[in-house]
Computed example of a mutant assay.
Amino acid sequence: MTTTKNSQLALLVTASTMMAAPALATTSEQNQFFDNIAAHCGKAYEGTVTAGNDADSAFTGKKLVMHVRECTDEQLKVPFHVGDDHSRTWVITKTPYGLHLAHDHRHEDGSEDKVTMYGGMTADMGTATEQSFPADAHSINNFRENGLNVSITNIWHMYIKPNEFTYRLTRENRDFRVDFDLSKPVALPPVPWGHE
Rank of each mutant, 00 (worst) to 15 (best):
M1V: 10
T2S: 13
T3I: 11
T3M: 13
N6Q: 14
L9D: 15
L12K: 12
V13G: 04
V13I: 14
T14S: 14
T14F: 12
T14R: 15
M19H: 12
A20D: 08
A23I: 10
A23M: 10
A23L: 11
L24R: 15
A25C: 04
A25Q: 09
T26V: 15
T27D: 07
S28T: 13
F34P: 06
N36A: 01
A39K: 12
A44I: 00
E46F: 08
G47S: 04
V49L: 06
V49Q: 10
T50Y: 07
S57T: 13
S57A: 12
T60R: 13
T60D: 15
T60G: 12
G61M: 08
K63C: 06
L64I: 08
R69Q: 15
R69W: 14
E70Q: 15
C71W: 06
C71G: 10
E74M: 10
Q75Y: 05
L76S: 06
L76V: 02
K77A: 13
P79A: 08
P79M: 08
H81W: 07
G83I: 06
D84H: 13
D84Q: 15
D85H: 12
D85S: 14
H86M: 13
H86I: 09
S87K: 09
R88P: 07
W90M: 11
V91A: 03
I92D: 01
I92W: 00
T93V: 04
T93E: 13
T95K: 00
T95N: 06
L101N: 01
A102W: 05
H103G: 00
H103K: 01
H103A: 07
H105Y: 12
G110M: 03
G110V: 02
G110C: 03
S111F: 05
D113F: 05
K114T: 14
M117F: 14
Y118W: 12
Y118Q: 10
Y118K: 07
M121G: 07
M121T: 11
T122Y: 02
T122H: 03
D124S: 05
G126T: 00
T127F: 09
A128M: 03
Q131F: 05
S132W: 10
F133A: 04
D136L: 00
D136F: 00
D136Y: 03
A137C: 00
H138M: 08
H138L: 08
S139I: 04
S139Y: 03
N141E: 14
R144W: 07
R144T: 13
N146S: 06
N146L: 00
G147C: 04
G147A: 06
L148W: 07
S151V: 05
S151L: 10
T153F: 11
N154Y: 01
N154G: 01
W156P: 03
H157I: 06
H157E: 09
H157A: 03
M158P: 04
I160K: 00
K161N: 13
K161Y: 14
P162N: 06
E164P: 01
F165H: 07
T166P: 02
T166M: 08
L169E: 05
T170S: 10
R171A: 02
R171E: 04
R171N: 08
E172F: 13
N173R: 08
R174G: 04
R177Q: 11
V178W: 04
D179T: 08
F180P: 02
D181L: 05
L182A: 06
S183K: 02
S183E: 00
P185Y: 04
V186E: 01
A187E: 07
A187I: 09
L188W: 00
P190C: 05
P192E: 09
W193E: 07
W193N: 05
H195N: 14
E196G: 15
